[in-house]
Design a protein around this nucleic acid. Sequence first.
DNA 1: CCTGAAATAAGAATTATTCCTATTTAATTA
DNA 2: TAATTAAATAGGAATAATTCTTATTTCAGG
Lengths: 155, 155
Amino acid sequence: MPLNSGQIDKRIRAFTKICRQSGVRATHQRREIFREVARTDEHPDAETIYKRVRKRMPTVSLDTIYRTLSLLEEKGLLKRLELFSGRTRFDANTQPHHHFICTQCGLVRDFTSEQMDALARPNEVRSWGEVRSVNVQLRGICSACRAKGRRARAK
Amino acid sequence: MPLNSGQIDKRIRAFTKICRQSGVRATHQRREIFREVARTDEHPDAETIYKRVRKRMPTVSLDTIYRTLSLLEEKGLLKRLELFSGRTRFDANTQPHHHFICTQCGLVRDFTSEQMDALARPNEVRSWGEVRSVNVQLRGICSACRAKGRRARAK
DNA sequence: CCTGAAATAAGAATTATTCCTATTTAATTA
DNA sequence: TAATTAAATAGGAATAATTCTTATTTCAGG
Ligand SMILES: [Mn+2]
Ligand SMILES: [Mn+2]
Ligand SMILES: [Zn+2]
Ligand SMILES: [Zn+2]
């Protein structure tokens, strides 16, 4: 499910614009880190981004990865997902959307649903506070993992 | 929103039964740790449970807390929630339900919704794998935090 | 080309969680 | 009840993800 390059370009332009507007420097490191998240829909974690960016910038530090990801989140250019214990994952899709999550291999896929976006929130919820976002997580087992499981059992 | 003691008792009975059935020892530690999660709906983290259990069992170790929580999860007596980075939280409500989450203070509240449980999953999702659970997260700001924010701004 | 503020690299520190192992405990049996 | 023994625990060490500290580098403006 590769992103089309139009979408990637759009994200990169948003990055450039936001940097200029908010007066933060669009450094080489920041550009490469953002590009690496923006070019994929696989919701990578910090370590994965680090490894990929290092291919083209061998001296980049892991700390810069984390600092930059936090900055980008703060500027609204990406979202942080806490789906599993241990590793935070990052999402350059800032449109409201939902996730299918494979609990076996960690696959995360985006989908949208008007029905889910339009969910009526129960009255009790209204009394607890103000809802800012609705996120639906469908957890299960992806096709690849299911096939792998079948093969293992067949032995 | 305190739990009624009937519900707590029901959970404790489930614990006792599961331990006997699956041949794990119902130790003093396990009973106290489970009771501490079962008696509240605030979705505590391991550290919080540790502090509370220690009041009555001062020698309990943090490792036992973690080991026991994992065991209880494995036996289906509680669920693990990864809502924020850093700390895992635990939920003795094993019925399907959804959550309102305050992103400021970490408040988590349960609610149920037939509409949400009945959500149709898009076709594309069906092709990705098999969905085992549906979880809706409503993120926002709770009333207490909003009031606190207003007071701070008023100064 | 300077200058100063912002950003980075590298490694230390912190935090949550898991691992190791000597000791204790609970269930079973005599 | 006492002895047996596998399971469980306590306490401290280890690990993994993330954040902090600080000396050095970079970049924008003058
Ligand atoms: Mn996404
Ligand atoms: Mn819950
Ligand atoms: Zn999978
Ligand atoms: Zn709050």
